[in-house]
Design a protein around this nucleic acid. Sequence first.
DNA 1: CACCCGCATTTTGTATTCAGAATGCATAGT
DNA 2: ACTATGCATTCTGAATACAAAATGCGGGTG
Lengths: 212, 212
Amino acid sequence: MAIKRRPLREQIRDELMERLTRGEFAPGTDVNEAVLAAELGVSRTPLREALITLAGEGVLESSQGRGFRFAPVSRKEFRELVAIVAALESLALESSDPAHLRKIAPELLGMAQEFPDPVADHATVDRRDDEWHGLLLSGCPNQRLLDLLAGVKAGMRRYENLVVAEDEPVARESEEHCEIARRLLEDDLPGAVRALRANWVGGMERMLAHIP
Amino acid sequence: MAIKRRPLREQIRDELMERLTRGEFAPGTDVNEAVLAAELGVSRTPLREALITLAGEGVLESSQGRGFRFAPVSRKEFRELVAIVAALESLALESSDPAHLRKIAPELLGMAQEFPDPVADHATVDRRDDEWHGLLLSGCPNQRLLDLLAGVKAGMRRYENLVVAEDEPVARESEEHCEIARRLLEDDLPGAVRALRANWVGGMERMLAHIP
DNA sequence: CACCCGCATTTTGTATTCAGAATGCATAGT
DNA sequence: ACTATGCATTCTGAATACAAAATGCGGGTG
């Protein structure tokens, strides 16, 4: 077995994203590099490299002499991000191989139908949602597009733990995913793209109420 | 006057992009950090920070233990990048304020009509093209989208100096810009978006012949 | 002659150190 | 009493030092 060797900065980035997803960092708070580095058991150098990467993805902001802080959240930015992701996912879906889409459509439908626990925490719901969209775009040949999407979605992660899982919205999300899968089963790619856009817009509206 | 204070990593990033545009770095070649740092008169630390930023934008690649290299070019990646930029610029145009678009339409038309020197070097042509697209999107309220676009376009920069300026393609580009501006003058936003997409696709095809 | 192993060199990855800017508090002056 | 100024502290930004991995070369061996 080939053992993996990854730069510290990448491991640190992943760990920080993990903690961010767990809600350990409040938006708007400063990063104390020395403290965080000690906590992670690394030096400031690779930590700063990870912070710079995250700043490039919009997760952090930086200002001269004042270091990094977790980017604050706003309705405006959330709307901007959703518009971007909707456009990029649409493009990814449009450029996917129709045959592949037909092949995965049943699995997409199945995943959408097996309803998550009504009381599942938002982390579980979000993870399943990510998996579903990941499968949906698994046939996209545009690797740069997928990388870009991953970066933009990282910038959206801090919005996810603002909401608590509720019964009705999860059902809506599930229904919308079914709709997309059904379109794909029928080889209706334009319809699937429209449904995907509607899914993002709908998800955005469900979320907006929870953002200050 | 408030004097500007920018981190070294940003100045280095800009300088590297400048040199890249001037064709000083061949795609596929390795970066020697010590040499480059000495050349720029800085230490390796902020240089590496700049390199990491550029790697995030796709200008560089990095592999464990082997450092950074300028990303090689390929027809496949160029097509991917054009598809992305076309989609993002379309979104930016669609979300712009129609009134603002109407206001800048005459200027867009004027810029498109004043034909660049037939013998202008590609750098000049590219710069004018960038300015035109910048003005076109100047009314887009989605700041995250504009930032994202800037990053993706940075990743495309290394393709620009692969082509030499030619008479006919520049005229085509100019005509396509006129078409877009005219649509905006007539308040035909969907038509302008279609023309913008066509402009990117056309520009891509003109460029593809020059890529190995 | 080809191939492989081991050592020396080069270069990256990470840690540590140093310098300079920002922040906050205390004190003096009005 | 309030403001402004100077100083101490804290933290970031950059440079340097150190460790470890990769590369290249030379000698030895099949």
